[in-house]
């Protein structure tokens, strides 16, 4: 907390002035993409989770959500964290986002410890968190507006790409679930984050909409080269999207195994029926089955104790 200036306003100014940022990165080299001025490290870990432990201790309940977790996420990598419900996978995301302070260990972004939320780390939540009191257009503009840097062309382009043109003046509740989720994605992309943190963003959608959203997400990711950490409990979703799938155990959450998904990109829904996909899915299912059972037992025990 004290190591760095924590004032978010100052932070967003920094972001404006030296968008190539991360000057004090010690190792690894940077590619400067002249078009959008964003710095990119290649081949080096962008996110480094180092011996992360998070213990919740409300009223002495002492719940260990995550225990001694180590994980590195490379630049432009798409990583899915797969785990049973209540295994602490959201906690990992919240520590990276900067909402929670780790009890032990630390999370480093480009070598710097996380210090509160930052626009370079965009978040999509499980339940839709478009501001209900703002129109779709106002929601999309929100991030840039916070630092007086609204680029209307960019917003229009993003809305068009996601099929939301003409809905700028609608309020979120007037849109379908899939459209709301797309609008939230637009809001995030308008802010041009380096890392996208997505916490089961599609879990509330019907199967068909979900598939379309996954394809759209992959298109966006491939087009713009971003780093994505995607949390899910859906095995097929994880394999379809990810370069690497991190399988977590039931609580206390630890990494059980990491699956490298070696399926060619760009991927579309035809991948889902391929033999390779089935193999990966089978392996992931085996890994997660016991953990899901354990998680269910834990839940039952807690309810009985309460």
């Amino acid at each position: 907390m004290s190591k760095q200036e924590s004032n978010p306003e100052r932070r967003s100014q920094n972001r404006n002035q030296d968008t190539n940022g991360y000057e004090d990165m010690e190792n690894g080299h940077r590619d400067l993409d002249e078009d959008d001025g964003r710095a990119r490290a290649t081949g080096e870990a962008l996110v480094e989770i180092d011996d992360l432990t998070k213990i919740y201790d409300p009223d002495g309940a002492h719940v260990t959500a995550v225990e001694n977790m180590d994980l590195e996420i490379g630049d432009n990598e798409f990583v899915c964290v797969l785990g049973p419900s209540g295994c602490g996978k959201s906690t990992v995301m919240e520590c990276i986002a900067g909402y929670l302070e780790p009890t032990e260990g630390e999370v480093l972004i480009n070598g710097d410890p996380v210090d509160g939320p930052d626009p370079s780390r965009g978040v999509v939540f499980q339940s839709n968190r478009l501001f209900p009191w703002k129109t779709i257009g106002q929601n999309a503009r929100f991030g840039p507006q916070m630092r007086n840097a609204v680029d209307d062309d960019r917003i229009r382009e993003l809305l068009e790409e996601t099929g939301l043109s003409g809905f700028e003046d609608s309020y979120p509740h007037e849109l379908s679930g899939g459209m709301q989720q797309r609008a939230e994605l637009v809001r995030l992309l308008a802010n041009d984050p380096d890392i996208m943190l997505m916490d089961e963003p599609f879990s509330g959608l019907d199967a068909m909409t979900k598939e379309l959203m996954q394809e759209m997400l992959l298109d966006i990711w491939e087009e713009e080269d971003r780093t994505v950490l995607f949390i899910t409990h859906d095995v097929a979703e994880a394999i379809f999207l990810a370069d690497r799938v991190v399988v977590m155990t039931a609580r206390p959450g630890q990494i059980k195994d990491v699956i490298d998904v070696d399926i060619d990109r760009p991927r579309d829904s035809s991948v889902l029926t391929s033999e390779a996909f089935n193999e990966y899915q089978k392996r992931a299912n085996e890994l997660i089955h016991d953990e899901a059972e354990r998680a269910m037992e834990q839940k039952q025990q807690e309810t009985q104790e309460a």
């Binding site: 004032n7 930052d118 626009p119 978040v123 968190r129």
Partner: peptide
């Protein structure tokens, strides 16, 4: 819901901006 404030913070809102755009209208 706290997540609205979190969303605003992650989009780069300062404390007073969160107050103005999230807390007050909400």
């Amino acid at each position: 819901d706290d997540e609205y404030s979190r969303a605003a913070q992650s989009l780069g809102a300062a404390d007073w901006q969160t107050f103005r755009h999230v807390i007050y209208p909400g």
